[in-house]
Amino acid sequence: MTIIVKAITRLTVGLILLFGIYIVAHGHMSPGGGFAGGVIIALSFIHIMLAFGKEEAFKKINQGVASFFESIGAIIFITLALLGISGGYFFLNFLSKGEPFKLFSSGLIPLYNIAISFKVGSGLFIIVVILVLLKITKEGGDK
């Protein structure tokens, strides 16, 4: 990519990541949440890949790490849901609900959002990586 794209990317990529984290953290009281925030977090890494090439992006996060986070996100989600059984019901929101519209409120929902953002962010990143890495060949090898 050109120097313009690279310079702008250097400036914005951190902000995009931060915005993604903001969306995840405030998912329970404003529009957004784990899915939207996860997509934005993934976009910040995809942004690096588009501007500087895939090698540069893999230095920040490689497929193994992304795959690990994808699995761990799902496992955290299921574990939180199962912890609800301690209070009597699967998916029960057993933490204190707190005061509405405060960052630390609504019990387990912010934690679910974080688990979903792991899953969605790394999942989307892996999908883009696969689209970048795979080459399409025609049957019979005609050129």
């Binding site: 795959s67 690990f68 994808e70 699995s71 761990i72 799902a74 496992i75 299921i78 849901a81 199962l82 059984i85 699967f90």
Partner: peptide, 21 residues
């Protein structure tokens, strides 16, 4: 009653543990 969610939780949990380990 606790048996009902297990029908979904066991295979889902096992699937993601599989992908992790």
């Amino acid at each position: 009653h606790m048996l009902l969610p297990l029908f979904v939780v066991i295979p889902l949990g096992a699937a993601f543990l599989n992908s992790l380990l």
